[in-house]
């Protein structure tokens, strides 16, 4: 337990020191990479609620990531083109304000997770993996054919959305904003894991029948967890779209789902800082190996394979020992 805490502290320290160095050495690209890590880690933290705590192997979290991204894209594109989002029955304007976009992104992706979860949670095991994958693909093809919002080409947003009191175009300020969001969500996730709800969710993963006998319906607990998980990943999607100032159907693709899952597993399933460590390692490898060889994905694949076969529990699990936190 102590060791996991020390590793978490090391991860946080690295996440702070690297950008600080990049800022002083005037390396804006490294700052962008750190921002990307924070945002992708956020998506992983979202998935980890369903995957780690609830044992729900969702292969369709790209759906929520994409919905968050498109929430940002649609709201901002209407401001960009000076057209209202909707005129009837009531006038709704687009928005370039991050807090508004975040709320819309979380509500939309949370609601989608509620619907997808309500249908998918009727199944379990491989069927659950496959049906979540199918829902993700469904939205992927929908986004491709939705020509009003760019279709296959996606949507470009020329100016990054604003946050009251900050200049989000400054890489440092945007990085700190993303860190703040990640920090708040990590705190929330830690509280959630220890709350009666989180304990019920964990218990439902270990033994659904026992949870039922004490009067808790596993289906409902899992559904709420899935919705929360989707909403957090949706928030990450909105931020990711803002980082790139671009959304496209790729955000919905099953490769995205796979990558989010890889962050969680590379770092350590059900570990609070697992997705952060995993996303940092993934982006670091992408950056380092990408510089060495055009075929860096071979090496990434071999590494992943090694982690699955020999280092179960991911980075944090291997370093901190097999036991999962009891607190």
């Amino acid at each position: 337990m102590k060791r996991e805490r020390a590793i978490n502290a090391a991860v946080v320290l690295a996440m702070l020191v690297v950008p600080l160095w990049a800022w002083m050495a005037d390396e804006p690209f490294i700052l962008t990479l750190a921002t990307k890590v924070a945002i992708l880690a956020l998506a992983g933290v979202g998935l980890n609620i369903a995957l780690g705590l609830g044992g729900l192997v969702s292969f369709g979290h790209a759906a929520f990531f994409g919905i968050g991204g498109y929430a940002m894209g649609i709201l901002a594109s209407h401001v960009q083109s000076y057209t209202p989002l909707m005129e009837w029955p009531l006038l709704i304007e687009g928005s370039k304000s991050m807090p508004v976009i975040w709320v819309v992104a979380m509500m939309a992706s949370g609601l989608a997770a509620l619907v997808i979860g309500a249908l998918s949670l009727r199944t379990s095991g491989v069927y659950f993996i496959m049906i979540t994958l199918a829902f993700g693909q469904m939205l992927y093809y929908f986004a491709i054919s939705w020509s009003a919002y760019g279709g296959e080409d996606g949507l470009s947003i020329y100016v990054r959305n604003g946050f009251p009191g900050l200049n989000t175009l400054d890489p440092v300020q945007f990085l700190l904003l993303c860190y703040a969001v990640l920090g708040v969500v990590l705190f929330g996730a830690a509280r959630l894991a220890r709350s009666p709800f989180g304990l019920a969710l964990s218990a439902a993963r270990q033994s659904a029948a026992r949870v039922e006998t004490v009067g808790i319906a596993p289906y409902r607990v899992r559904l709420v967890a899935f919705a929360i998980s989707g909403a957090v990943t949706g928030l990450a999607g909105a931020l990711y779209a803002d980082l790139n100032r671009f959304v496209s159907p790729t955000m919905f693709s099953w490769h995205t789902s796979g990558e989010i899952m890889v962050f969680v597993i590379l770092g350590g399933v059900a570990r609070l800082f697992g997705p952060v460590a995993g996303a940092a390692l993934y982006i670091l490898l992408e950056h380092l190996l990408g510089g060495v060889s055009d075929y860096w994905q071979i090496w990434l694949g071999l590494l992943l394979l090694a982690v699955v076969l020999f280092a179960r529990g991911g980075l944090i699990g291997t370093l901190a020992g097999r036991e999962v936190a009891h607190d």
Binding site: G258, M261, V269, L302, L304, L305
Partner: peptide, 20 residues
Amino acid sequence: RDHLDQVLATFALILILSEG
């Protein structure tokens, strides 16, 4: 192993075979 490990390991195999 559980399905999660299988998904991840075979995902890794896709990367290796495609890039190879």
